[in-house]
Write a protein that binds this DNA or RNA. Structure first.
Lengths: 248, 248
DNA sequence: ACAAAAGTGTTGAGAGTACACCCATGC
DNA sequence: GCATGGGTGTACTCTCAACACTTTTGT
């Protein structure tokens, strides 16, 4: 380390992102940059993720997280939203940057760095692309995933961890539901994602005391049993409530 | 959106990161990818960040977060560690991916996507590059930052938020201290970063009950007053303790 | 003996958790 | 009137937060 100091400062003219006047950056090797969007939804009382089937090598026939190249004139989030709209037709969606994966050999063809996003969509807003000649897209249960291309298994695992974690200290659960919902539906959404049962009274107390919901005044008619009050997410609510400190 | 369906599926052959056989990806416009490393340390009882002074246009003379291009054969984290070692000489360091910034116009020259990392280093391990002809590097108080190049002000703000947040629910505070330290020093580190005073008894109880520290048996001699017990971080400790849930 | 920093316990308030029954509606 | 899911309250425990004095050392 010490010995390498001088040559290092010479060879790393661009180490601080400075390059000489007249330098043509395009001549240098550059990685490709993609966005991959992990799209979660609750379908048939199960947490599902949308995957697409690859048509070309490598990993032809295997399933992958939908994604694509970042266009030269769009931001990363715009790219992610574009991919999401292409796959699901949904535009007004909760989306969040997850992590950037960039191991040199994660794509066997060339260097590809991918910025992973995760999105939560309500199943009732999904615009089905049935019959299109686009690549096959299918919802898979997170409990029963097919073999995945690239490092996508790792990305999904990371996304699930983050989703669960997020659900525990923020109020993103609504994003998986339609605009209006009952408390039982919301509780069920939490139970499905967290994979455990919750106490009804404690759940209701905690959600209601956080004041992120408001009553619509409507009641659910269709179902059996007593009709449930219908709530909606308060658009003026602060979604992320301060958690209690652990340290110190 | 609906009208565009067909042409969209045609024009986006690479939307799912599939490109045709024989496709030469290098011909397409690609962004450059850099890593920037926000390096925090406690110096003179203040939270400081290491910045470098740019020599070239754009933003010549302004200060910037140290960083550089990701080499084609190294992972993102390797690139970040390399940059960190180049700037500080430190190798065994806490480092964490922060966020990826990729607005199309964040660099006026060309499209540059940067993966930001943040690092916590103990000031006693920093290897000074004094006299080297590398670009000027200087520690700045987070309370008194100079004008910053690119979107680096935004990155620093984000990094500070994340550091504070992290400190509240994990045990990374040690990373800012030497291997061995007293509880008062640790408390002071927390106070500096969080920007508020903490109760000594509550702090000690909470830290000690988490069992992430062990006594070295040694006592601090130098100072005035009663000598303090010296602790070290338990290498077998779990740094991230489960926080109490907020929802539900 | 005094200055300076280290170390130590208790109490009250608020939040979390566990737990069982009545209510409104459709059939 | 009964089946079905909706809605409600209370007691115990635990953690947090506030607060002041004694101990050990060097000079």
């Amino acid at each position: 380390m010490l010995l390498g100091t001088f040559s290092l400062t010479m060879s790393d003219k661009n180490a601080t992102n400075d390059w000489p006047a007249g330098y043509d950056a395009s001549k240098y090797d550059r990685p490709s940059v993609t966005v991959d969007v992990v799209i979660f939804s609750l379908i048939e009382e199960d947490l599902k993720v949308l995957l697409v089937q690859r048509k070309n090598s490598p990993f032809a026939g295997m399933w992958a997280i939908p994604g694509g190249f970042v266009h030269i004139d769009e931001s990363l989030e715009e790219a992610a939203l574009r991919e999401l709209a292409e796959e699901t037709g949904v535009t007004d969606v909760y989306i969040e940057q997850l992590y950037t994966f960039g191991d040199p050999d994660r794509d066997p063809r060339t260097r590809v760095i991918t910025v992973a996003y995760f999105a939560l969509v309500s199943s009732d807003t999904i615009w089905h692309q049935a019959g299109s000649d686009a690549e096959a897209a299918e919802w898979f249960s997170m409990k029963d995933l097919p073999p995945l291309a690239f490092d996508h298994a790792k990305i999904l695992e990371y996304a699930l961890t983050r989703l669960r974690y997020k659900l525990e200290y923020t109020a993103v659960g609504f994003q998986l539901l339609p605009d209006e919902f009952t408390l039982s539906e919301l509780q069920q959404a939490y139970e499905i994602v967290l994979g455990e049962e919750l106490d009804k009274r404690n759940f209701r107390r905690k959600i209601l005391s956080s004041e992120i919901l408001e009553e619509t005044g409507k009641k659910k008619k269709e179902a059996e049993g007593r009709p449930a009050m219908i709530y909606r997410y308060r658009t003026d609510a602060v979604a992320e409530v301060k958690t209690r400190r652990l340290f110190p």
